[in-house]
Structures are given as structure tokens and as C-alpha cells.
């Protein structure tokens, strides 16, 4: 999805004149566009008077923000403490192998993006991952592959 300037402006304008709105405006853009397109920062400066350098500094400080597009399905693999001691690293390796990801985090067909996160709050079901809005717990290597199979199947 490519965002055009008017869509970005529409997302930015409601925050005009609000104090402490840097993070909320970035969140609004990311939620709707999927990431922060480079032109967002200049537009934020133009509309809200927040220097682009500052907005960019905030965007790169917080783990939530992305400045590159993500695949259709965002897979968040938890590597918090509970998931870590229950083998999260093996799950991550299996997912990356399955998707044939060498260095990149997004598959070439832009269908999947893999992101490592620290704790999804379902630690008692570790290891845990999230695909889009759906959380999957008590993962084994086999179960992980089955879940990915089901998403793959939905793509063809």
C-alpha cells in the first residue's frame, strides 16, 4: 500500500494544535498506512510545527515504529523471558527457515514480515507468537509450521 500525501494530511490534521501529540500522530499514520512513509515527517512539520528531525528522532527511538513497509501478515515472535526459556529462539529459527528469510525480515512476495518482540503478556502459554491480531500459544515447531501453512494456504 502506498500512501499519498492527501491520505497522510488527513491523518495528521486532527492532531493539529494538540500538545504531546507526536507519538499519537505517528501511531495514527502507522495504524492506517502500515508504516511511516518518509514524507510523513515533513508533513508533520508543515502541519503541526514539530520539526521533522524531532518527529524522526521519536519514531526511531520507539520499537513500535517502522519506516519501511511490512508484509501482509506481520508475525510477532515473542522472545521475552518466559518464551526464551521455553525455546523461542528455535521457534524463530523455524519460522525464518520456513519463510526462506536470510537477512531480510520480509518475504520477497511481501506476504510475511517477521518481528521479534519482548513479551506479549501471555507468558503462561509460552512460547507465543502473534500473526496479525491473533495470538498463538504453547507453540511447538510442528504447531508453528502448521499455523504458517494455514496462512500460506490462504494466499493461493
Amino acid at each position: 500500500m502506498d500512501a499519498n500525501t492527501s491520505q497522510l494530511l488527513e491523518l495528521i490534521r486532527p492532531f493539529k494544535g494538540q500538545t504531546g501529540a507526536t507519538i499519537p500522530v505517528l501511531q495514527a499514520i502507522q495504524t492506517n498506512v502500515g508504516y511511516l512513509p518518509p514524507e510523513s515527517f515533513a508533513l508533520i512539520e508543515q502541519e503541526m510545527g514539530i520539526p521533522a528531525s524531532k518527529a524522526y528522532g521519536v519514531a526511531t527511538f520507539y520499537a513500535q515504529f517502522r519506516t519501511t513497509p511490512v508484509g501482509k501478515h506481520l508475525i510477532k515472535v515473542c522472545d521475552g523471558t518466559a518464551c526464551h526459556v521455553k525455546g523461542a529462539v528455535n521457534i524463530l529459527t523455524a519460522i525464518r527457515d520456513y519463510l526462506h528469510l536470510a537477512d531480510a525480515d520480509t518475504t520477497e512476495d511481501r506476504v510475511f514480515t517477521v518481528q521479534v518482540v519482548a513479551c506479549l503478556g501471555c507468558c503462561s502459554l509460552a512460547p507465543v507468537m502473534m500473526v496479525g491480531e491473533t495470538t498463538y500459544g504453547s507453540l511447538s515447531l510442528e504447531k508453528t509450521r502448521e499455523i504458517l501453512d494455514s496462512y500460506r494456504a490462504g494466499e493461493v
Partner: peptide
């Protein structure tokens, strides 16, 4: 903000 990765009381 419940930052401890592995804790979920506040959630």
C-alpha cells in the same frame, strides 16, 4: 507500561 518481559499481572 509493564515492561518486565515475562510478567503479566498488570495486563
Amino acid at each position: 507500561d509493564e515492561g518486565d518481559p515475562g510478567a503479566f499481572m498488570d495486563r
